[in-house]
C-alpha cells in the first residue's frame, strides 16, 4: 500500500493542512528546470496528461472534485447518502466528512481497501487531540494556522507509517 497525499479542508473550503509522501521522481516538486526529451515529445502531441501543478493548485482541484462528487452522491442517493471514495487506474481517493463539515482526503494506490475508519481515526485521535484541544490554536484555521504543529505532524507521520505495515 502506498499513501501519496493527505489533505484537510475546513468548512470554508480552505485547505488547512496538506502532506505528501511518495512522489515519483520527475513529477511536480522534484521536477528539474531543464526540459527533458519526454516533455518535448509530449508538447508536440496533444496536451500532456500529467501537467505540473503546484501544491495549492492540487489542493484546489481536489477540493473541487470531492465537493462536486459529494453533491452528486447526495443528489442521486438522497441526503443520507455519503460519498466514500473513487478510483481511477492510477490512484484512489478516500473521503471522510465530519459533522462540522471538515473534509479529510487521502490519496493512495488503487489496491487499498476502504479507509473510512482510518480517516475517522485520524480525525478523532490526532486532529481532535492535538489541534482542537490545543489551547493556543485558534478556532478557525485560516491559512492553516494552528494545524501544522509539531505534535500533530509527528503523530500523523507515525500513524501513516504504522498503517503502511
Amino acid at each position: 500500500m502506498v499513501v501519496y497525499s493527505f489533505h484537510i479542508f475546513d468548512r470554508h473550503a480552505e485547505c488547512i493542512y496538506s502532506k505528501r509522501w511518495h512522489q515519483a521522481p520527475g513529477f511536480s516538486s522534484m521536477k528539474s528546470d531543464r526540459p527533458r526529451s519526454g516533455e518535448i515529445l509530449a508538447a508536440n502531441g496533444d496536451a500532456p496528461a500529467n501537467k505540473t501543478l503546484s501544491r495549492e493548485d492540487d489542493a484546489k482541484l481536489i477540493f473541487g472534485v470531492v465537493f462536486s462528487l459529494r453533491n452528486m452522491a447526495s443528489r442521486l442517493g438522497g441526503d443520507d447518502n455519503s460519498f466514500l471514495c473513487y478510483r481511477t487506474k492510477e490512484y484512489k481517493l478516500h473521503y471522510y466528512e465530519t459533522l462540522t463539515r471538515m473534509k479529510f482526503v487521502m490519496i493512495t494506490d488503487t489496491k487499498t481497501n476502504n479507509l473510512q475508519l482510518i480517516l475517522h481515526q485520524i480525525w478523532a485521535t490526532l486532529y481532535v487531540e492535538y489541534v482542537v484541544k490545543n489551547p493556543l490554536s485558534p478556532a478557525e484555521h485560516a491559512g492553516g494556522v494552528g494545524v501544522a504543529n509539531e505534535l500533530f505532524e509527528s503523530a500523523l507521520e507515525r500513524f501513516v507509517t504504522t498503517m503502511l505495515v
Binding site: 513529477f27 482541484l61 472534485v65 481511477t88
Partner: peptide
C-alpha cells in the same frame, strides 16, 4: 447538470494522478 458535472470532474481526476502513468 449531473452529466455535465461528471464530465468536468472526470477531466480533473485525470490531472490529479500522483504518479506518472
Amino acid at each position: 447538470i449531473l452529466a455535465g458535472t461528471f464530465h468536468g470532474v472526470h477531466a480533473i481526476t485525470r490531472q490529479l494522478a500522483p504518479a506518472p502513468v
